[in-house]
């Protein structure tokens, strides 16, 4: 308990230091506030535009989570399919490797062209960006079953599907977790880029609009909300993973 409180205090201290540094730079350099607003001014803007920020943050968050869920589902399904079917491996794996070499962010204009300015293009951007890391991390884990376990499965005359369920999937869960960690980090980038390319709502849209109007404080306020959103997403994920991977957990199976 004291440890958690101590960590909280340390975090608060670091935050305070960062804010002080920021304000110090603003004072010392004397830059006008439309170039770099101080933290107090950004806080003011946060407060004044709370309703608008919340509304746009909601749009961004919903697309982010929808894209995340769909991308993870698609990636997991692809990896399972590839692990089960040598034919699928032959056809799809080179494509997967090639697709990883394409900077997916560069596809944002095309996606917007095809799917319009609404939510679908943002969701698809998130899916595209996280699909490959999730698929390849999980697939690698599935294929890297230790040789002794593979021998055992063969001696016990395992069917391919049951071998997958009882051996490969549990063995690959840590790999899937590292793929998901990447997904959780990339997804906010993807959704904001989707909004930058073409949108009439969302935090990314708000940032572009505020920038265009010289409302730098509002732009920074949007950025703060976006950072908070990413941080909450990441911490939630880490908490869930930490719970699941806690050592000494009682046998759930059997």
């Amino acid at each position: 308990m004291i440890g958690a409180f101590g960590a909280f205090l340390r975090g608060l201290l670091a935050l305070g230091f960062g804010l002080a540094l920021w304000q110090g730079v603003v004072w010392a350099s004397g830059v006008p506030s439309f170039i770099l607003p101080g933290p107090a001014r950004v806080a003011e803007s946060l407060w004044a535009n709370a309703a608008m920020l919340a509304q746009n943050a909601r749009f961004t968050a919903v697309n982010l989570l929808t894209g995340l869920a769909a991308g993870v589902a698609l990636g997991v399904a692809t990896a399972l399919n590839l692990a089960l079917s040598p034919g699928a491996r032959l056809l799809l794996r080179p494509m997967l490797i090639f697709a990883q070499a394409v900077p997916v962010f560069a596809l944002a204009p095309v996606v917007t062209l095809w799917l319009g300015y609404g939510a679908p293009s943002k969701i698809v951007m998130v899916m595209l960006v996280i699909y490959f890391p999730v698929t390849s991390a999980f697939f690698d884990g599935l294929m890297r079953l230790p040789a002794p376990l593979a021998d055992m499965a063969q001696l016990m005359r395992a069917t391919p599907v049951r071998r997958l369920i009882w051996m490969q999937v549990p063995h690959a869960l840590p790999s899937l977790a590292s793929g998901l960690r990447l997904a959780v980090v990339y997804a906010p980038f993807a959704v904001v880029i989707g909004e930058w390319v073409g949108s009439s709502r969302g935090l990314g849209y708000l940032m572009l609009m505020a920038n265009g109007r010289g409302q730098t404080d509002l732009m920074f306020a949007s950025l703060v909300v976006l950072a908070a959103l990413s941080l909450i997403l990441f911490l939630t994920f880490e908490t869930i993973i930490g719970r699941l991977a806690r050592p000494g957990r009682k046998g759930r199976v059997g």
Binding site: L149, W166, M167, P170, H171, L173, G251, V253, G254
Partner: peptide
């Protein structure tokens, strides 16, 4: 299997 119980 390190993730499974003895019985499993």
């Amino acid at each position: 299997l390190p993730w499974a119980s003895v019985l499993h």
